[in-house]
Design a binder for these strands. Sequence first.
DNA 1: CAAGAAAAATGACCGTGGTCAATTATGGAG
DNA 2: CTCCATAATTGACCACGGTCATTTTTCTTG
Lengths: 198, 198
Amino acid sequence: MTTTIQPRTLKTRARLIEAATAIVAESSFTELRVEEVVRRAGVAKGTFFAHFKDKDALLDRMIGEIIDQHLDQISAQDTPKTIDEILDTLTPLMWFMGSERTVFDVILRYSGAASVEEIGPIAATFERFIHVLADWFVDGPFRQDADPATLAEGVQAFVFQALALNFCALNNTRPVRDRLRPYLELWLHPAKTLDPQG
Amino acid sequence: MTTTIQPRTLKTRARLIEAATAIVAESSFTELRVEEVVRRAGVAKGTFFAHFKDKDALLDRMIGEIIDQHLDQISAQDTPKTIDEILDTLTPLMWFMGSERTVFDVILRYSGAASVEEIGPIAATFERFIHVLADWFVDGPFRQDADPATLAEGVQAFVFQALALNFCALNNTRPVRDRLRPYLELWLHPAKTLDPQG
DNA sequence: CAAGAAAAATGACCGTGGTCAATTATGGAG
DNA sequence: CTCCATAATTGACCACGGTCATTTTTCTTG
């Protein structure tokens, strides 16, 4: 019943990730090829799939790690008090999410956990993302009539919406930040627009 | 300069679409294979790609047509006056959008126009969708402090969010409708929650 | 109808993700 | 140290989307 994991397993997996990271650094996630990864790692193709369910599982892990680093940065900053401060804080993460269509597609597909027992790296970061956002909305200067977690999920929805629109040639003249702002104002400060005195 | 389109071109394309439609009816969009389409249509593989840029272009067209039929239904109904009526009205379209992961992925990828001159079928339906929604919000019982088009885009964002969450095993116990409602209440009726008397 | 130009169709071929039966390496028991 | 169960690796092979030089069909013009 005990499945022993041999040391070489970890070594091989590390080599695969290292090779993939190097390829992405040199070119992009879009250009990443499994055959190139195994060539550089010096293993056979089948070995790759013994370590990762499929190519997307590798991307999930790599992209999840980068998002997590962004969340570290975001958490380390002061709690934003205005819409503009929120936009400032989220901009680096959003820039990464929209840096490549491939990256955005993988994030969209894996931002929800596939199942309870095997929650993937990206899904985990988005759970964390919601918590970070929700904390901003507890006792903050933003609307207090809603569950902070629901507000956070709404912000996430708007981030995805703004990024998705950014990928259409029709709309990508405006920066993502400017497209996100009106949503957040109506979502987080409804009193301001409903009652100008507020 | 004049590129003549021969009658057989239309006939071949019709056969391809007919074959694809039959396959989807028998199985699903997920199971659709280009090789099976051309086999049934009685043409060579290369012919397919002379008619459609790639497999996704066919899916774009087929799915766009179905969405358009849903919008016909939605337009034919009375303008919804409450959140629940909105949910009732949107449910069939949302059910289709979430019927297969493949369908949802294609919709996400093509809901924005790739470029001004070649706006795809799905992108066109989502422009129409925004207009239909925006019309509900002009002089309606919903918040009047915001641009109707922006409100409509927000609803679209929440629809995508609710559907995306529905694809995670973690969350798919609740129907999509129930997941969408809280967002819409906070988005379209902020006065109700901010001021209970309202 | 003949001839030639343009449009349409063809199918062998390629790239790349993914599979799996066979082989090799590892570590623990005696 | 030897044996062997099992973990790990291998690479030939498959599935399927997509390409393109070549061939066939159609339309036009005289």
